[in-house]
Amino acid sequence: MPHVLKPLLAFAILALLSPAARAERLLLSNEKDNTITVVDAASLKILQTVPVGARPRGLIVSKDGKSVYICTSDADHIEVLDLATLKVTGNLPSGADPETFAISPDGDTLYVANENDNTITVVDVPGARVIGAVSTGVEPEGMAVSPDGKLLINTSETTSMVHFINPETRKMIGGVLVGQRPRYAAFTPDGKQVWVSSEVAGSVAVIDVATRKIVNTIHFQIPGVPRETVQAVGINITNDGKTAFVALGPSNRVAVVDVATGAVDKYLLVGQRVWHMAFSQDGSRLYTANGVSNDMSVIDVAARKVLKSVPVGEEPWGVVDVP
């Protein structure tokens, strides 16, 4: 874009954003410089950079919205960040090398993927203790809990499987083989499907939860972009269950997918190596963590346009939107 237009455009975007000013903040985990960047959602200005434990990756907001749980992978625990003070107020045990996790609908249980141990650790949040473990495939990564809390999903990257686990008994109840290196699992809001991204295969498997069968496999072909850079990772599905956004890693694109048909409607150019994403509270914005360009892209969900990029810390991995 010509340089003369840039300030104008930035001004226009700010003008667009300002009326909808929300007291929302975005937290990004920067896995290389061991910080959390706190960004004001309205102004897109950095409010604070919070030092945390080594290699922060997965982020989840607590049920009461007062804190954020952070997988500090190389510190081998989960840190609890208080959102009022922006200070780490405590740790939760997690097993070794926690990378990603999922939370039960009641907010009391965390299911943590221990990537190097082929294990899922079950953590009781109020008691701050480990209450169980599930042996799983090689390199567990993606974690998701169904909307009704009755099903736990885990993906294992080298095993290339989606594991169905009963969270109550902590027993495997089934598994589905998918494309290579499954990274992320997301339920549709009705809980009837689980979408699983495969990084190396560069595809998304749509799995029917009731039958545990793949009903569709979505492939991504971006004109002029080498196939090997298309690595599907984060998946965020809109609350109305109609649209899925799929982060495609080093292809620097986010795919917009029609949930009903599985058709890719559009590719949005974002920062480099986009992995994980988060919707704003009202669902009008989607924020992406771009690990190589060290920034966050802001997407207008309705218009399907990238509005702005915001520099953050080093190697941003994930992002959450907090009230």
Partner: peptide, 11 residues
């Protein structure tokens, strides 16, 4: 072999 065996437990 260990990687294959872990997968084999599920298949």
């Amino acid at each position: 072999l260990a990687d294959n065996a872990t997968t084999g437990r599920f298949t």
